[in-house]
Computed example of a mutant assay.
Amino acid sequence: MAGMMIFGPPIDARALFPVERAALLELLAGLEPADWARATVCPGWAVRDVVAHVLNDYLRRISGSRDRHSGAIFANDETLPGYIARTNEEFVRAASQCSPRVMTDLLAHLGPQMDQVWAGMDLEAPAELNVSWADPEATSPAWLDIARDYTEYWVHQQQVRDAVGRPGADGPDLLVPVVDTFLRALPNALRGEPRPEGTEVRFEVTGPAGGVWAAAVTGGRWIPVPEAGAPAATVRMDQDTLWRLATRGITVEQARARARLEGDPGLTEAATTLLAIVWV
C-alpha cells in the first residue's frame, strides 16, 4: 500500500528544529548548578543525563545520515530495544566527564549541522531509520523519520522542564506536530484487534494542540483515515496526557483514568496502549 495510506498525510517538521533548539538552549543557560543533578522521569537519569542523551542523538544522526558512519554494532543476540538502551547508557556515562557548559556549547554548534542534514532529505524517500512504532513491517517515509526525531527532542526538553519546574515550549506551534506524529501510532496500537472492514476508531485530543484522528480497517488492516463519521469506539484525552502516554511518562492505567472512553471496550483499551517510542 502507498505510504500515504499506511502512515497518513505527510508532516514537514524541519522548520521546527531550530525553534525547539533555541528554547532548549535558553532553558539550559538559565539552569543553576543544582538543577543539572535533579532527577527526571527517565529512570536513573538526572537532567545532565537527559541533555547528554540529546547530544548523543545529534552526534549519532549527523554521523549516520551525513557521514554514513555505521556506528556501534549489535552484540550477540541483542534486540533493538536492548541495543538502544546499552548504547544510550554508554554515551551518558562517558558524557559525565563533560561540564554542562561544554554539552550546551556542543548542542549549539551541532544544531545547524543537523538542520542541514534535514534540509537535504527527500521527504518522500524511504526513511534512513524506520519508525517501527508506526508500523514494524512497512518501510517508513523520510518525513516520518524526521518528525519522529523532532518529537524526541521536544519530549526530552519537556522532561528537563518538568524536572526543574520550568514550564514552556509547549505552545501549539511546537506541540501540534508532536501530537500529530504520535497519533500515527494508532493503527499499530489497534493491530491486535481484528474487526470487520470499515470499522473505525476515533481519537480526540483536547487543548490548543489537539484535534481529531481516526483509524479504520481497510483491506484487512488498520490505517489512518479522515475523521471518523460513525466510530465503533472513541477516546477523548487532553494533549498533556497524550504525549506522556505515548512516551510512557505515565502508565496506560493513569492515561485511561484521565481519558473518556466510549464504545467497543476492546478497541478503546487497545487505542490507549498507544506507544511512540521503542520500548524494552
Rank of each mutant, 00 (worst) to 15 (best):
A94H: 01
A94L: 02
A95T: 05
S96Y: 04
S99D: 03
S99V: 11
P100M: 09
P100W: 13
P100T: 11
R101Y: 01
R101K: 11
T104E: 06
T104D: 00
L106A: 11
L106Y: 04
L107A: 07
A108F: 00
H109V: 14
H109W: 04
L110G: 00
G111I: 09
Q113I: 15
M114Y: 03
D115K: 06
D115S: 08
D115T: 08
Q116E: 13
V117S: 13
W118A: 04
W118V: 10
W118P: 05
A119L: 14
G120Q: 10
G120S: 09
M121T: 02
M121I: 13
D122V: 05
D122Y: 07
D122W: 10
L123V: 06
E124N: 15
E124K: 13
A125H: 10
A125D: 03
P126C: 00
A127Y: 08
E128F: 02
L129I: 05
L129G: 06
N130F: 02
V131K: 04
S132F: 13
A134K: 04
A134V: 11
A134P: 03
D135H: 15
D135M: 09
D135E: 06
P136L: 06
E137M: 12
A138D: 14
A138G: 08
T139W: 05
P141W: 04
P141L: 09
A142T: 14
A142N: 10
W143R: 08
W143E: 07
D145L: 00
I146D: 00
I146R: 08
R148E: 02
R148S: 08
D149H: 14
Y150A: 00
T151A: 14
T151F: 04
E152Q: 12
Y153Q: 15
Y153C: 06
Y153W: 12
W154I: 03
V155R: 09
H156F: 11
Q157F: 00
Q158K: 11
Q158N: 08
Q158T: 03
Q159R: 12
V160M: 05
V160A: 08
V160Y: 06
V160R: 10
R161N: 03
R161A: 08
D162W: 15
D162I: 14
D162R: 13
G165Y: 01
G165L: 07
R166F: 01
R166D: 00
P167G: 01
P167C: 00
G168T: 11
G168C: 12
A169K: 03
A169F: 10
D170C: 04
D170Q: 04
G171F: 12
P172G: 07
P172H: 07
D173N: 05
D173M: 12
D173A: 11
L174G: 05
L175N: 01
L175H: 10
V176P: 00
P177C: 07
P177S: 07
P177V: 02
P177L: 03
P177R: 09
V178E: 09
V178D: 03
V179W: 01
D180L: 06
D180R: 13
T181C: 12
F182I: 03
F182A: 05
L183R: 13
R184E: 05
A185C: 14
L186G: 00
L186V: 04
L186C: 02
P187T: 08
N188V: 01
N188T: 07
N188R: 11
L190T: 06
L190D: 05
G192A: 15
G192V: 13
E193D: 00
E193A: 13
E193T: 12
E193R: 14
